[in-house]
């Protein structure tokens, strides 16, 4: 360990019985200082704003807070957000498992290209992801007139919002599973097949149980992002109040209407969803950390 490469520890010299061996060479005050800086930083950047969200939401009392959710705009926004997540997450679940299965268990030409593609939504700005769908399905696009003639609405409607969300969130599950499945290798599956199991049986009885915690972890992260996505959804939404505004967009609208209590009430709901996700995530890490490939990454 590089921490040991200091001058304090010398194996040739006997250690005096009262002398405790410190694992690092830094002085105590350095340690205190570093920890304080980290804590203060976290407090200022993460904890205070989070508290502020709840503080603003409840500033005018509980009645106003709950009244914020009786507004039709807020209700439809919550419904839409849940709907979009309910469609996008299962889609990415299927895609994520299929992609990681392919990447981890098979060797094929273009594999590293596929992995790069899976990572693409992480590196592309969400605004660009939204814009791409407008260019693809907008009224001025090559597909536009055909879509219109057949009465198919994609952008400025729910399908566009789902597409943009799927695009932005699709790496979460695959990225979680690929390293896990690669580490597990093929031996369990080979054993199952040699004992006469069919492909589906192998998947349901061997592969799935092996990856279930990693999968759940990926689903949680994917879901959190699906509900919180702003940029890409903003571009394709059309911002029709009560129809195509998701919770993050509704927060922006309420804020722009000087309805700060309403904005922060909806924000607090999103924050609670995020906190709930975090609790589940920590629970998973604590119980099944050894089965999660990505624990150290997030």
């Amino acid at each position: 360990m590089f921490e040991r490469e200091g001058a304090v520890y010398d194996s040739r010299r006997p250690i005096a019985p009262h002398q405790h061996l410190r694992p690092t060479t830094e002085r105590a005050w350095v340690k205190v200082l570093l920890i304080s800086i980290a804590l203060i930083y976290m407090l200022a950047i993460v904890v205070l704003p989070l508290i502020q969200v709840f503080f603003e939401a409840f500033r005018k009392g509980f009645d106003t807070y709950f009244a914020s959710f009786e507004d039709r705009g807020a209700q439809t926004a919550i419904q839409l957000t849940l709907t979009v997540a309910a469609i996008a997450v299962p889609l990415n679940l299927v895609f994520g498992v299929a992609a990681s299965w392919a990447v981890a268990k098979f060797e094929f030409w273009g594999k590293s290209f596929l992995i790069t593609l899976i990572d693409l939504p992480f590196s592309v700005s969400p605004v660009v992801s939204g814009m791409v769908y407008v260019l693809l399905f907008g009224a001025q696009s090559a597909l536009g007139p055909w879509l219109k003639a057949n009465d198919i609405e994609i952008i400025f409607a729910v399908p566009g919002i789902v597409l943009a969300t799927v695009f932005v969130t699709f790496p979460f599950i695959a990225r979680e599973l690929i390293p896990l499945m690669q580490a597990q290798g093929n031996t369990d599956e080979e054993a199952a097949i040699s004992l006469g199991a069919s492909g589906w049986q192998t998947f349901w009885r061997v592969t799935l149980p092996n990856i279930k915690w990693g999968l759940l972890y990926g689903v949680l992260l994917c879901n959190a992002r699906a509900m919180g996505e702003f940029g890409a959804v903003s571009v394709v939404s059309g911002h029709i109040r009560g129809q195509t505004t998701t919770m993050p967009l509704e927060i922006e609208i309420l804020y722009n209407e000087y309805n700060f209590t309403g904005a922060f009430a909806v924000a607090s709901l999103l924050a609670m969803l995020a906190l709930l996700t975090l609790v589940f995530k920590s629970l998973l890490e604590w119980r099944y950390g050894d089965e999660l490939a990505g624990t150290r990454r997030h």
């Binding site: 399905f137 907008g138 009224a139 400025f156 911002h239 609208i253």
Partner: peptide
């Protein structure tokens, strides 16, 4: 009556792009 609000130029562009 549904409402959509935003910068005027951006809103016009959305209608051009198919916001019905």
């Amino acid at each position: 009556i549904e409402q959509s609000h935003g910068g005027s130029g951006k809103q016009a562009q959305s209608v051009i792009d198919g916001l019905s």
